[in-house]
Design a protein around this nucleic acid. Structure first.
Lengths: 336, 336
DNA sequence: TATTTTTACGAAAACGGTTAAGTAAATAAA
DNA sequence: TTTATTTACTTAACCGTTTTCGTAAAAATA
């Protein structure tokens, strides 16, 4: 009923709460026999320390927050798995906070974090995000912040990304070599660093391939799946429709297939498709999807590792730390 | 630097901490003008309450724990999205804890929860789980527990599941009608309630279809993907290989495709396939996969709703609450 | 006017674990 | 033997918020 606290434990043992606390922490101040008694009694009474009392006093929560737009696609799922694996290993808990791509929500979550709910932050920003004010504040308060995948300018801290520019270049280049002359680039919010980088890679490849870049081939998609479908349908119905398309984030790949099916367009005959994607099913799609496969799990692990380095060692600076984990172009039928 | 606490706020305002606390909570004891002053000053100093101090004092954490085997497949991803949506709406935080299908890890996590880290628990148990002791303890301590999808016997609390038996029956029946006579059932741990139910549905459909049930058609898969592949390959290489297969959990569907491709088996010609799956790509696979689509998002939402009902109303009993959200058989080419 | 009630606030004690500072006893050093 | 040190604890303060209880002053009631 009344939870068993450290004082109750202490009373049972005829010891002070301080002694019990230290014994549980395996302090050198406590004798072996006493430690043993304490451990045994703790087990017998099924004592579990109150994490909040501990957090309050020690000013650390043994919790990290993972702030993501969503967890609906494979990329973030895999990343969470990677992060959680490391965190659990370090004895930390993982708070998953979803922003639903709303920068306002993100602000609210970050503001809450100022209260000390988490010792460190892993974040992949929303497509609306631009203002790093809250993150800067957190950083000032000594809460380490690590970006993964989607970063945000204006704040100097560690970022774990993939080689967005290069992989986009490779993807574009591949399409060109396969004969595409009019390549649509499906983008989400252009403000986003990954969008920027990927668009840049696309541009450079076009240039190197002798194709003139045209602004209108950058298709600004939204987060409303239905709307994206409508948009794609419109574009693919035009007489001068693209002969190649790059889906620059995972969620934009499947809709392309969907639209092609509806319009009776053949992939890769009428349209060649590449997706930035972590779908395990990519190889089994009809036709198999050529992907830029991002090392999601690895990125998650790596980001978490950096964060824990900072948490474990106050001298370790996250400044300028950039870890680039390369993506892999996996050529399949959709660009055949 | 030194965090701004409620006392610092109070000093600035020439008020007591108690008054400030009440003002922030919009208590009726505090006058309108004072409340306003407090709110303004709080905003000016960028005050954020320490959640742990609050949790300690109020004995509630405004946090729920979601305990899952993994988050690598679509089912759990979508479920998390559903859960988080509700939780955020109610002002709660979500702690995601992964058990990696290890019952030992699960025990450890649940034991930690005894300390009061979360106000309520949503859990989908591991395939190894059998002993609900920890869950019972939590329940006794007044921590509401809601199962979703994978439940555990021996404890009377709410569970949100899909109609496992019926949907498995329908899937099996469908295969029989399509001409299958030897249907393999790919299962994970048979101890699991969902496995049991799904196998039962399979059995009943066989019986009703006039096909003798054979123990050896229940294929006990593991959580090691490579091993599953080997196992499947062996089975599909036999002369008397199955002419139909039911993948009873999502992660087992793709490997079937993989093995068929390697062995040069045609789906649905040589083998008809149904998967319990939430893959968004199911319709675009080669061939399109017939699925039993589980309402993952809805299940997550529903489970979270039940939990919050219990959290919001101490009189609300989770006992005997069973919510069955039906799955949908979506017939596609793989069983054509 | 005297009394009760209401309003608006403050003092202080929680909540449960940690830790700095202190202390008696035991041991080591001088 | 005396003093210094170490060992193994205890006391009490502290973390920051909430909440119970109290209390002046103001308002309402008698």
């Amino acid at each position: 009923m009344g939870n068993v606290t450290i004082r109750i434990l202490a009373r049972q043992l005829q010891l002070s709460a301080a002694t019990v606390s230290k014994a549980l922490a395996d302090s050198h101040e406590i004798s072996g026999p006493t430690k043993k008694r304490v451990l045994e009694m703790a087990a017998a009474l099924n004592y579990t320390p109150n994490p909040y009392a501990s957090s309050l006093r020690r000013k650390k929560s043994k919790t990290i927050a993972v702030i993501l737009p969503e967890v609906a696609d494979s990329f973030f799922s895999q990343a969470i798995n990677g992060i959680e694996a490391i965190a659990q290993d370090k004895g930390y808990h993982v708070l998953v906070c979803l922003t639903h791509e709303r920068s306002q929500k993100e602000q609210a979550i970050l503001h809450e974090m100022l209260g000390g709910r988490a010792d460190g932050i892993l974040i992949s920003v929303t497509s609306e995000t631009s203002d790093p004010a809250c993150l800067l504040e957190l950083q000032e308060k000594g809460v380490p912040v690590v970006f993964f995948d989607r970063t945000c300018d204006g704040i100097d801290t560690a970022r774990v990304v993939t080689d967005d520019l290069q992989s986009s270049y490779k993807a574009t280049d591949h399409l060109i070599r396969q004969g595409c002359r009019k390549i649509a680039f499906l983008a989400i919010a252009e403000g986003l660093s990954i969008s920027h980088q990927r668009i840049e890679g696309y541009k450079q490849a076009l240039e190197d391939g002798g194709i003139k870049f045209s602004r209108e081939n950058i298709i600004a998609c939204t987060h409303d799946a239905a709307e994206n479908l409508r948009l794609l349908k419109k574009i693919m119905s035009r007489k001068d429709r693209p002969d190649g398309v790059i889906a620059s984030v995972e969620k934009l790949a499947v809709p392309v297939y969907q639209v092609c099916r509806e319009l009776g367009l053949n992939i890769p005959g009428d349209l060649k498709v590449i997706g930035f994607s972590n779908l395990v099913t990519a190889a089994f799609l009809q036709p198999a999807l050529t992907t830029v496969t991002q090392p999601a799990f690895e990125m998650g692990r790596s980001a978490a590792s950096l964060l824990f380095k900072a948490l474990g060692n106050k001298n370790f600076s996250l400044s300028q730390q950039v870890e680039v984990i390369p993506s892999e172009l996996q050529v399949r039928e959709s660009t055949g």
